[in-house]
């Protein structure tokens, strides 16, 4: 992806070129490109006079940031204690098998990203799977396919409308 320097520069100027605003700037870049492009990070490092390795450290520390492009839909499988006990790992395994990716990665067609989360604070309805802010309660291995189909269908419908 071609990174527009002007855009990144506007993010940096928005925070007055402050070093302390690094996370806010990274969040803006993440929102704009859906990931943190390499060139953008190098540019931020030059502008803010922060060593590149420190920026990488921040970018890899927080799960809100991603160094590889995220997919259209993000699938988050809960691995908190309650969901874990009720079969979270098996559901994750099923997602990995269906999407043919490991957790933390994106499918080749850039449709789905698969992630795990520690707890979504709704343990009563576990195991929980969240796709684009939509909560799917009490999922089982059987539901995995229907959930994925739902979002794939949406794509197709949109295309038909267009």
């Amino acid at each position: 992806m071609n990174v527009q320097t002007d855009k990144v520069k506007s993010f940096i100027n928005k925070y007055n070129c402050k070093q302390s605003a690094l996370i806010a700037i990274l969040q803006e870049i993440q929102a704009e490109y859906n990931y943190l492009p390499k060139n953008a990070l190098i540019y931020v490092s030059q502008q803010l006079h922060i060593p590149l390795i420190d920026i990488i450290g921040v970018a890899t520390f927080y799960s809100a940031f991603s160094l590889e492009p995220k997919g259209e839909h993000t699938v988050k499988v809960c691995m908190g204690t309650a969901c874990h006990v009720r079969g979270g790992p098996k559901i994750l395994e099923e997602f990995e098998r269906r999407l043919e990716i490991e957790s933390g990665h994106t499918t080749d067609d850039k449709q789905f990203s698969l992630d795990t989360v520690a707890c979504l604070e709704c343990c009563a309805i576990g195991p929980v799977v969240v796709v684009d802010e939509n909560y799917h309660a009490q999922t089982s291995i059987r539901n995995v396919d229907t959930i994925l189909k739902k979002y794939r269908k949406k794509e197709k419908k949109n295309e038909e409308h267009q």
């Binding site: 590149l52 990488i56 450290g57 520390f61």
Partner: peptide, 9 residues
């Protein structure tokens, strides 16, 4: 140098 650092967590 600041060439290496901690990554991930």
């Amino acid at each position: 140098g600041k060439a290496i650092g901690f990554q991930n967590r």
